[in-house]
Amino acid sequence: MTSLRAATCCAALMAGAAFAQPAAAQTSLTVAWYGGNWGEAFRACVAEPFTKATGIKVVPEIGTSTVTLAKLQQQKAAPTIDVAWMDGGISELAQAAGVTGAIDPQAVPNLAKVSPEAVYKADGAVFAVGTGYYSLGLTYNTQKVKTPPTSWNDLWNPEFAGAVTIPSPANSSGVPFILFLNKIWGNPANDLSKTFAKLKTLDTALYFDSSGAASNAYQSGEAIIGAHFSVGAWDLADKGLPIGFAVPKEGVWATDARLHLVKGTPRAAEAARFIDTALTPQASACLAEKLYLGPSVQGVSVAPDIERKLPWGVGGSVRNLQLFNWADINRDRGAITDAWNRELARQ
């Protein structure tokens, strides 16, 4: 039964690859993406142009990356989601869970325009493609912090005591941020004890576990300096709050929002076409304008005011981002979370 279904799926995939044409104007495509301004941007930049070009309706399935992965695992036998956006980290877990299908470069010609760093392969097949980078940089209150910070070590400035925030391991950036600090401080990769000892001396207001909690803390003045996602920090600044975002000299840790073709979807050809639409320079530029995502498509140019808000800062590029190997992070996740609980999350 399962093998029969798998065979049918393979046949469908191959057929899809051979005739990459919209099957019928009436079909609809279910795409999993995130809520809030992210979902809005994906709809405006990718889904609407796709529907305009193909006549295929896009049905959004809203959820965070983790929730989407859980849904994909439940519907493994008969998927109803055709395409899914998931963040770096969860993307690798999805691949390991066997819910991602291969993205065929023949069916997705725009894949050739994507920077090689954003094309993720396992066993020789492409399982995910990045649609834009975001980073975790230094975020600060421009009224309370007079000199813009230039280094992560500025967080230890006694002036900011009790008003600093950094992510907790419950946040997707929490564990990689610790590994990032460990790296920039030149501590040995296999021994985090010095990094934890230094973090213990940081006088924080809170460790945030959701991006919303971080935004809330900066907004209320609970935190005046710390780490935050580029997307969230610029969103606050655009709302007129005195918030600045800086890329310190040590660099920033970054990851990306990636597209996946769901394994076994009966609408593989349409799904491939959708992914192709997301990888056009227009879609990439549109996501940069709306979310300040660093384009993964090569040669995309954006207005100067947008460019300074990209995750790598002024004059940077994807090469300035510290992109960690998520396989390593996921392997150590349990141990690092445990160490964090014992060292920092108690009085």
Partner: peptide, 14 residues
């Protein structure tokens, strides 16, 4: 808790 105190349900959720 601002992530600075851990209660059992938070460990479970993690």
């Amino acid at each position: 808790s601002g992530g600075k105190i851990t209660v059992f349900p938070m460990l479970i959720f993690q």
